[in-house]
């Protein structure tokens, strides 16, 4: 197990389009394990490869629900609908929080660690996290979508 360093904004890798993964080998497996350890260590519920400095379309999501840890390799959004606004924070932007509008429902096609394609439908918080992480793979940061920022003090009073 290894906890990797989180790449912080303004590192240019965070704003690049990531490369498609072609090799589904033990190296990929190791990356996924490291990403999980890193996500858990930093109290994240999602993590994308560029956040640990890797140019690859890999993201993981785990919101402690029945899905467990979902691993997305080369994910594509094939449908989305609805609209919800809620607060988000990002491991690459410490202490920055803001409301972001996202779809309430999303259908994603991706490959698993063996390269096998799968389709996932997500709603609510799960949809939000998936969308946030997939954005990372295309160099899109949540700050470009924030409709309202929060001051750190506002978050302490129990409202969120």
């Amino acid at each position: 197990m290894a906890i990797r360093e989180i790449i912080k904004y303004p590192n240019p890798i965070l704003e690049k389009e990531m490369r498609i993964v072609e090799q589904f080998d033990s190296k990929l497996k190791q990356i996924l394990e490291d990403m999980y350890d890193t996500m858990v260590a930093y109290d994240g519920i999602g993590l994308a490869a560029p956040q640990i400095g890797l140019d690859a379309q890999i993201a993981i999501v785990d919101i402690d629900d029945q899905h467990g840890t979902i691993e997305f390799i080369n994910p594509k959004i094939i449908a989305q609908s609805g609209s919800q606004i809620d607060i988000e924070g990002c491991l690459s932007f410490p202490n920055l929080y803001g409301d972001v509008r996202r779809a309430t429902y999303v259908k994603i096609q991706a490959q698993n660690r063996l390269g096998k394609p799968f389709i996932l439908e997500a709603r609510g918080l799960l949809a939000r996290v998936c969308l946030h992480e997939i954005d990372h793979l295309h160099g899109i940061l949540f700050t470009s979508k924030v409709v309202k920022y929060y001051q750190p003090e506002e978050l302490k009073d129990g409202k969120h």
Binding site: D43, G46, D86, E88, G89, C90, Y97, L125, L155
Partner: peptide, 20 residues
């Protein structure tokens, strides 16, 4: 993405115990 406090509060104590 970070786990926000609000999102945490939806956690159910028995579910959390089960996961642990």
């Amino acid at each position: 993405m970070y786990r926000m406090k609000k999102q945490r509060e939806q956690e159910n104590v028995r579910n959390l115990a089960l996961n642990t």
